[in-house]
Amino acid sequence: MTAMKAFWRTVGRDLQLALRQGMDSFTAVVFFVLAVVLFPFGVGPEPAVLARIAPGVIWVAALLASMLSLERLFQLDYEDGSLELLALAPLPLEAAVGAKITAHWLTTGLPLIVAAPVLAVLLQMDAAGFVALVAALALGTPLLSLIGAIGAALVLGARRGGVLLSLLVLPLYIPVLIFGVAAVDAAVFGFAVRPHLMVLSGLLLAALVLVPWVTAAALRQALE
């Protein structure tokens, strides 16, 4: 019971920090919107072209936005020493990691899901794909936060952490991108959406089980 309470306290602390920093946590969504809005200028405003590439563009932008916000996940706590206190606390570090990932998803993943349908309208995406887009993002963005947490923990204290983080995390994001886009495309073209969503759910469940352990191991070696 107390462990559960400590878990939610950690989530609450991170959420409070994100809220107090104001714009800081908003930057991911702003980046997401801006990156997507660039595409009509890049490929031209032709509705048919935009509608065809909309799922891919939205997913790639979501991937990059999620990745850009990863550095905040552990970096500040690592610099001011609160990460060491978290590691010493009675709550297992694995659970603390889970709490921090939850808070990261709530502050970056959730706003992306809210913004995505609006962007889909801007890109003239077929209305048939909207539910699939939101469902795939709802399964995919937590997966992005989870996979990204491993990278964020590994690069703590490294030189050029930001560039390195993208090199580590982006290759591992590719499966999420493939199945996320496949789900939306299937909905748009009238094929079955369920298999793609089930693969995403499977990946999410596996990541939920494995990522906290890997990330905690990475944090421990960073704190040694």
Binding site: L154, G157, L164, L168, A218, Q221, A222
Partner: peptide, 20 residues
Amino acid sequence: MALHSAFDDPARGAKAAAIM
């Protein structure tokens, strides 16, 4: 390889890269 060489302390790099 990038992660291995990104730390001033080579032991840290070796461990982080091993997890990766």
